[in-house]
């Protein structure tokens, strides 16, 4: 996949031009992963996936509802054939339920990859670290590629990496809140110590949030609501795509250090009024 954008500067060959990342041996050119939920129509979802140039999208697993007219519809039929489907375990309140979701999806022919979510309380939608750890251990032993969704907890991220998880997915802020990166310092530590890709998942409400995540050193972002509920989802998907490229390019270029005070950027000598 081409990731270079001529209007984003002149990053050299070997860095941004072939700037891919790898999860468990699979290489991705796109650092923008899309959730498929909450779109008004399947067409809108598909347009957004195309505009984002996403190579991985999440899907959920639910019982067939024989009474609903759309109960048998299969969202994967509206997706491009070459994107990797990443089944999530949304709806699982315990480790056992999450493992059940993942195994059911794999048995039915979906990839043996899982965005592992264990969320006990629908009020806050915050992940259970203990349940996530337990489920990760079981799914890893069962051969899954495991991408756990976690709070931005560096110690938990390290524990999950230690188990063999293939990426970690800390939240920016709670699911669907659109509040951006509320735990920058913790995410910075997760990135600094990570030996697997870090994907910021949840809470990214604007393209600038995605750029910020990549500037902080995240390898990728997963975005759903901010694109799905936009007036123009495909345009917003394109905006996120550009923001991800800009943030990544800025990270690679070497960001300046923040300072407490202003520092002149024009010469301080040779002033017209004399020195």
């Amino acid at each position: 996949m081409p990731t270079a954008e001529p209007d984003l500067g002149h990053a050299s060959e070997g860095t941004a031009m072939s700037d891919e990342f790898t999860i468990n041996g699979r290489t991705f050119g796109s650092r923008l992963i899309l959730g498929t939920g909450r779109y008004a129509t399947l067409d809108a979802m598909r347009s957004a996936v195309d505009a984002a140039q996403a190579e991985m999208v999440t899907v959920a697993v639910r019982l067939v509802d024989f009474d609903a007219p759309t109960g048998k519809a299969d969202i994967t039929e509206a997706l491009p054939d070459d994107v990797l489907l990443l089944p999530n375990t949304a709806g699982a309140r315990t480790a056992e339920e999450a493992v059940r979701f993942a195994r059911l999806a794999r048995a039915g022919g979906l990839p043996a990859w899982v965005k592992l979510e264990v969320i006990p309380d629908q009020r806050y939608l915050l992940p259970d670290p203990v349940g996530t750890l337990e489920a990760a251990e079981e799914l890893l032993a069962d051969g899954f590629t495991v991408l756990p969704y976690i709070n931005a907890d560096p110690v938990l991220a390290a524990r999950l990496e230690g188990l063999g998880c293939h990426a970690v997915m800390p939240l920016g802020s709670p699911i669907g809140s659109g509040r951006g990166l509320k735990l920058r310092d913790s995410i910075r530590i997760i990135v600094e110590q990570a030996t697997v890709p870090v994907v910021i998942d949840a809470g990214l409400g604007a393209p600038s949030h995605a750029a910020e995540a990549l500037e902080l050193g995240a390898d990728a972002v997963l975005v759903n609501t901010a694109i799905a509920v936009a007036d123009e989802p495909a345009v917003m998907a394109d905006a996120f795509r550009l923001a991800v490229l800009a943030g990544r390019r800025g990270r690679l270029a070497g960001l300046m250090e923040e300072r407490e005070r202003g520092t002149a950027s024009s010469p301080t000598s040779g002033l017209l009024g004399g020195s």
């Binding site: 959730g35 067939v64 997963l222």
Partner: peptide, 27 residues
């Protein structure tokens, strides 16, 4: 979970409990 490859060979017996799910939109 029943592997897709064996859908055509697994015979259901009286009293079996079967759950059918599918991929849906989700984040």
């Amino acid at each position: 979970p029943v592997p897709r490859e064996s859908f055509s060979v697994v015979e259901l017996a009286a009293g079996d409990e079967v759950v059918v799910a599918r991929p849906v939109a989700g984040g």
